[in-house]
Design a protein around this nucleic acid. Structure first.
Length: 423
DNA sequence: TCTGGGGTCCTAGGACCC
DNA sequence: TCTGGGGTCCTAGGACCC
């Protein structure tokens, strides 16, 4: 074996972030809710022990919350994002070969670390992250990313492993795969798990032993790669430099339902500005834009409405001014009176690097002026927050604003919050 | 009353071209 | 009357991830 990967992930990450700055949450069941306080997206171990499942709607656990004094928090992505950066900064002290896989997970390529004591090394990583950031993490180490994921999973469940598991020995790998359900393998979701069960395949070990032809036929080439990774053959490389996005989407449910076009415009305008800001942050322009508007999916079918409009721009752009015009036109097009709307959003597609945009005769005559304006706005928002400058159409009342009943302070990123907490 | 918000990749099938 | 076959591009749908 020549390859070696580690995956380090934060335990119950959002709940742990909250605990770092609010020690009263320690030892208590904690759940963090999605936007609009809709559903549970993170749970402390104590909350898991009470049987609270991932994704369960908040209203369904009301009784449990009262009975067990569960601490229920709105999500605070500004805080979690900053804590995530701190964890990554810490891990970079161990190796520069790091891929930020998600807000709470990083893969590390330990390529030629076979000569070090991996157990000690992984344990030191875990302890250092805890010491420097306050975040508890688990570390899985194995010859492939998929096997490292398996190791990481078991490390959290096994008291003996206590958050660190190195799987390099063939016998240990076999044992680990035999006690891993096939649906818990990275890349095998619930649909594939159900399908595999019809062939009698229920464990990761059984999946590892299917033929290549079987894997390709039933799980496509993606699944074949997973099977090979389970065999110890590294097929998925570390991606140190994040690829620029091919689609950028910004959407939110409204805090309550909206019927008025003006209010919906305000929401969509704000999403469009955010989306365009993301687009410029990766130095890209978009050639196509889609706007959608929908009622609640849980409505009575006679009161359900979904529509979208896709618009091809004359020339790819990153100008909010242009995108706002198009988005508002599209919205006017799909808006129908008489529905209670729950969500709108914008998707930017056909994304190209901004230095590859071919200007044509139809390009906005104001392109230079727009770009200077965008640069200024980006700087202002970067310094004073995204609410510091706004367009008229965004409105000021924000009828659509998120419902967030119990959001924690931004302990690490906002001066006013820091001062408030200290006093 | 209340149910998240992002992304990626692959495949099949139709349109179209020569 | 005979009515092919290969290639490309696009899209919708389905699967997955966090």
């Amino acid at each position: 074996m020549t390859s070696l990967f580690a995956i380090v992930d934060g335990n119950n990450f959002y709940a742990s972030c909250e605990r770092v700055f609010n020690p009263e949450l320690e030892g208590k069941p904690v759940v963090v809710l999605s936007n609009n306080d809709g559903a549970v997206i993170a749970r402390s171990n104590e909350a898991k022990a009470l049987g609270i499942r991932m994704g369960v709607p908040a209203f369904e656990i009301k009784d449990l919350v009262r009975k067990h004094d569960i601490q229920v928090l709105s999500s605070n992505y500004e805080l979690y994002g900053d804590m995530s950066r701190r964890v990554v900064d810490t891990l970079l002290h161990f190796t520069p070969h790091l891929e930020v896989y998600s807000i709470d997970e990083s893969f590390l390529d330990l390529g030629n670390f076979y000569n070090v004591n991996l157990q000690d090394y992984a344990r030191t990583m875990k302890d250092t992250v805890r010491l420097w950031t306050g975040i508890p993490v688990a570390v899985g180490v194995a010859p492939t990313k998929t096997l490292a994921k398996v190791a990481n999973r078991i490390s959290k469940k096994s008291a003996k492993a206590n958050g660190v598991l190195v799987l390099t020995d063939e016998r240990h790998i076999e044992e680990a795969l035999k006690r891993t359900e096939v649906g818990d393998v990275w890349g095998i979701g619930s649909r594939y798990a159900r399908k595999l069960a019809t062939f009698g395949i229920t464990t990761a070990w059984q999946l590892r032993n299917v033929t290549d032809a079987f894997a390709k036929k039933h799980l496509t080439v993606v699944g074949l790669r997973t099977v090979r990774e389970l065999r110890g053959m590294a097929c998925i490389d570390l991606e140190m430099i994040p690829a620029s996005k091919q689609n950028i989407c910004t959407s939110r449910s409204f805090g309550s339902t909206l019927t008025d076009l003006g209010d919906i415009k305000g929401a969509l305008a704000t999403h469009t500005v955010r989306c365009a800001t993301k687009l410029r942050a990766q130095n890209s322009c978009a050639g196509v834009l889609t706007v959608f508007l929908e009622t609640s999916r849980f409505n009575d079918p006679s009161q359900t409405y979904f529509n979208s409009r896709t618009v091809k721009l004359d020339c790819p752009t990153s100008s909010e001014v242009e995108l706002l015009h198009c988005a508002m036109d599209a919205l006017r097009n799909i808006y129908r009176e008489g529905y209670r709307y729950k969500k709108t959003g914008i998707i930017l597609q056909d994304i190209v690097p901004d230095n590859q945009v071919q200007l044509n005769l139809l390009s906005s005559p104001n392109i230079d002026r727009d770009m200077k304006l965008m640069q200024t706005l980006d700087k202002l928002r970067d310094r004073f927050g995204h609410k510091s400058v706004r367009y008229g159409v965004q409105g000021v009342k924000e009828e659509w604003a998120l419902k967030q009943e119990n959001v924690s302070p931004c302990y690490t990123t906002r001066l006013e919050d820091i001062l408030k907490v200290r006093s």
